[in-house]
Nucleic acid binder design. Structure first.
Length: 793
DNA sequence: TTTTACTTCGTTTTT
DNA sequence: CGAAGTAAAA
């Protein structure tokens, strides 16, 4: 190793870099520099081993991780790194299937169905099969089918395995029909992308061998989150050269619900007996205090590979814990802390992240961020590409691109309103089924459908429209095509007619889609509509986060995996919320252990400062619920925590308090800290008020309250409302004092979209001016000055 | 066919 | 509290 780029690595990292041949299992604890090891390893392969970048494949879970990995390799290697295939499992499979899926009887221009599409397809099928969705919900079908696919179980096998069970038998039938429908629509769902690729490789050994020869060196990041299907995919690809490096941490496995199989990591050595195992245990990210807290929590899990993270960093600040009466106060505290710390020059806004268990918690936090004038981004919520207005436009594009996608065609047939209702649609569907053609082709044939009468006159213009777009798509760019669609269908007017509240925002999203399309075209010269649609289907919310933006990040603990921040807040540390109610009442302690790993992931995101917060009461689904402090907080030894007031510490698993009477570890897992949850007869547990839940209701109402019965819902009370909408990556308020406006009531102003108008009202709001303008053309609009960007004329 | 008023029900987490 | 589904009216 002559070059100096490897000198900064520690011994284990170096060893990992030098182990280029054969199977390698890199057990990399949180913050142990695994990406560093991975990037240097790839650089080493290219620079020192003379491996052609073309022969290297690296799997990641998100596009963002893929981009980062490529960038960092780029910095090390200089050139050639664009030849490395770095991408997510899903994107990789799309690329492979685009070339070869015709071998499985699909058209290579297949479309990709998201969860929404799956749900409507299942709903259709249930209707046809006469299945009552109250007995078996669509979600149940989706989960069952998804989990079958994660395990590479096809419909036939599924039905064979589940002949006895009534509801599983039904699921098997639906699964079969669902697959048939997907094929008919020339569509694949997320799980199919992996499963079909495995199928392809098994059906066509020559195709597999082609890729085996291409990908002679394979590495997999976040290996603990791979499912059975992904495992098989990797096994096949690496089958010939066996140069396979997987990097993972069993303590950070948090996607079991998505099919991740921890056995993939625990049993790796069994599948590859000649595996070299290297552990990275030195943590470079967190202070000793943070690390101690993380270890204190995770050590309560069993069934983990032994490891001991250590750091050379100093002790650092103590980890804080604060409990508040309400979630409002919790949010207040976090926002105020960030505002004052950032104001005092303690780091940038971008140094802060607020993590929570459920997306719903974002609202409150977001509201307080706005009030404090803190610039923030919310990751997650409703994915940008899953929003109605975006899906409408994408459905147009899909119909233009792939006439076989019935779901897309049906979605837009009456958007905007064309007077085509369910009965007409049903007739067209019947006709399509009879002739075994697609829904769209049936529409083209509308003249021949019996007793359609005047409805034909409504269908024809639609067909003509799509045909026109099709020919335009031959030479027009995607962004231009979208603009043309919007104009021709009068989408803006449609939005305004259906949703007067959010029309403006929705249209802004559509405009955002145009710029994303333009950006994509710029980055991918000569790209096709098909490619764009696939790309868009595989975007995760986290992919849209700009690391350089100096903004506080609000996101779920799941989204935070792989990231790090100097200062982290974990909000909602409450039993029933985190760990979730579901995991507490589950029979299986595995669910609770997964929650604990999630806590571990959250804690280890922090570099210097970590604050845990909880609320005694919070609104969930319009009801106020009371929760005790999270058991995960109680698992942290007192001396490691900075609490203003001592955490009520009823559980003494570690302190040996004789007060306690848990019979066993299982008993603790089940019941949690004293008085928390009781197991009811059914699946639902019940929550009782306990001493560590502060009660601030009038005594009278408390006195009249009877103890919760078994199976009853958690005790609730009415509270106040919430607000705001969250989504994709939501840009928070720009960091600015109340926008100074240079106009007043009665002034003439101009708006970029609405043109000239007269200011009729101007009032001061929390931290902005609310302006009412009577536009000459667009009529009256009420808007915030900072967003409206009005110019005085 | 479309609009509306009313009921029901749910959430963990996401590629 | 909202989304989404259903029933009834326009």
């Amino acid at each position: 190793m002559s070059s100096s780029i490897y000198d900064t690595l520690n011994r284990e990292q170096k060893e990992a870099v030098l182990t280029t041949e054969g199977p390698l299992l890199l057990l990399a604890g949180a913050g142990s520099g695994k990406t560093r090891a991975l990037t240097h390893r790839i650089a080493y392969l290219i620079r020192e081993m003379g491996v052609n970048p073309w022969n290297i494949l690296a799997f990641t879970f998100t596009n963002k991780a893929a981009e980062e990995l490529r960038e960092r390799v780029d910095q090390l290697v200089g050139f050639g790194s664009e030849q490395i295939w770095v991408s997510t499992f899903h994107s990789t499979c799309v690329r492979i299937l685009r070339r070869h899926i015709d071998r499985l009887g699909f058209d290579n221009r297949f479309t990709i169905y998201d969860a929404d599409d799956q749900k409507s397809l299942i709903k259709d099928i249930c209707k046809r099969f006469g299945i009552d969705n109250k007995q078996i919900r669509e979600r149940d079908f989706m989960n069952a089918i998804s989990s079958a696919k994660d395990r590479l179980v096809d419909p036939l096998e599924y039905r064979m395995q589940n002949m006895g069970d009534f509801s599983k038998k039904k699921i098997g039938e639906v699964y079969q029909e669902y697959q048939d429908q997907l094929k008919k629509n020339n569509a694949l769902d997320f799980d199919d992308l992996i499963m079909k690729t495995v199928e392809l490789f098994k059906a066509c050994p020559e195709v597999l061998e082609n890729y085996q020869d291409r990908f002679q060196y394979i590495s997999v990041d976040e290996y603990q989150d791979t499912n059975r299907a992904q495992f098989e995919l990797i096994r096949l690809l690496a089958g010939k050269y066996r140069n396979l490096c997987v990097v993972g941490d069993d303590d950070q496995s948090i996607y079991k619900f998505r099919g991740a199989d921890i056995r993939n990591i625990l049993d790796f050595e069994k599948v590859y007996p000649d595996t070299k195992v290297i552990k990275l245990e030195q943590n470079y990210r967190s202070t000793a205090n943070v690390l101690d807290v993380a270890n204190a929590v995770i050590r309560n899990n069993r069934g983990r590979k032994a490891k001991a993270l250590w750091t050379k960093k100093g002790a650092g600040d103590r980890v804080c814990f604060r409990q508040f009466d309400t979630a409002y106060e919790e949010a207040d505290y976090i926002a105020a802390q960030i505002a004052s710390a950032a104001g005092k020059g303690k780091g940038k806004y971008g140094d802060y992240a607020v993590l929570y268990r459920t997306n719903a918690q974002a609202r409150l936090l977001e509201e307080r961020m706005v009030q404090e004038g803190i610039p923030y981004d919310v990751v997650g919520g409703v994915n940008f590409y899953a929003r109605k207005e975006i899906k409408d436009i994408l459905a147009y594009l899909k119909t233009i691109d792939n006439g076989r996608d019935d779901l897309a065609a049906k979605r837009i047939i009456n958007i905007p309103r064309r007077g085509i209702g369910p009965s007409t649609i049903a007739r067209v569907e019947d006709y399509a089924e009879m002739r075994d053609i697609s829904f769209y082709d049936a529409l083209r044939d509308a003249d021949n459908i019996m007793d359609m009468g005047r409805t034909v006159s409504r269908i024809d213009p639609f067909v003509t429209l799509i045909q026109t777009f099709r020919s335009k798509a031959q030479y027009m760019g995607i962004a231009d095509l979208i603009r043309d669609i919007l104009e021709k269908i009068g989408y803006k007017e449609y939005l305004e007619s259906t949703d007067d509240e959010g029309a403006e925002d929705r249209y802004a999203n559509v405009e955002e889609l145009i710029s994303k399309a333009a950006g994509y075209e710029e980055a991918h010269d000569g790209c096709t509509l098909t490619e764009f649609l696939a790309e868009v289907a595989l975007v995760a919310d986290i992919d849209n986060v700009e690391g350089s933006a100096d903004r506080v990040l609000l996101m779920t603990l799941h989204s935070a995996k792989g990231l790090e921040f100097p200062c982290v807040y974990m909000a909602g540390m409450e039993d029933g919320l985190f760990p979730s109610y579901m995991s507490i009442s589950a029979d299986d302690t595995a669910e609770l252990e997964e929650e604990r790993r999630l806590a571990y992931v959250g804690i280890t995101r922090a570099m210097d400062r970590l604050t845990l917060t909880a609320a005694k009461s919070r609104m969930i689904r319009g009801e106020t619920q009371y929760h005790p402090v999270s058991r995960f907080v109680k698992e942290i030894p007192e001396e490691l925590l900075d609490c203003e007031k001592a955490v009520p510490r009823r559980w003494s698993f570690q302190t040996g308090d004789p007060d306690e009477d848990y019979d066993s570890r299982e008993d603790y897992d089940r019941r949690g800290s004293r008085g928390g949850y009781e197991k009811g007869s059914g699946k639902l547990g019940s929550l009782r008020l306990t001493e560590d839940v502060f009660d601030f209701r009038p005594k009278a109402s408390l006195a009249g309250r009877k103890p919760a019965a078994k199976g009853e819902k958690p005790f609730i009370a009415q509270g106040m409302g919430s607000l705001n909408q969250l989504a994709g990556v939501t840009k928070g308020m720009p960091y600015q004092a109340p926008a100074a406006v240079d106009y007043k009531e009665g002034d003439r102003v101009s708006h970029i979209k609405y043109g000239p108008g007269t200011v009729t009202r101007l009032e001061k709001d929390v931290r902005d001016y609310k302006v009412t303008v009577e536009f000459d053309k667009a009529g009256q609009k009420i808007m915030y000055a900072s967003f409206a960007k009005l110019k005085k004329i």
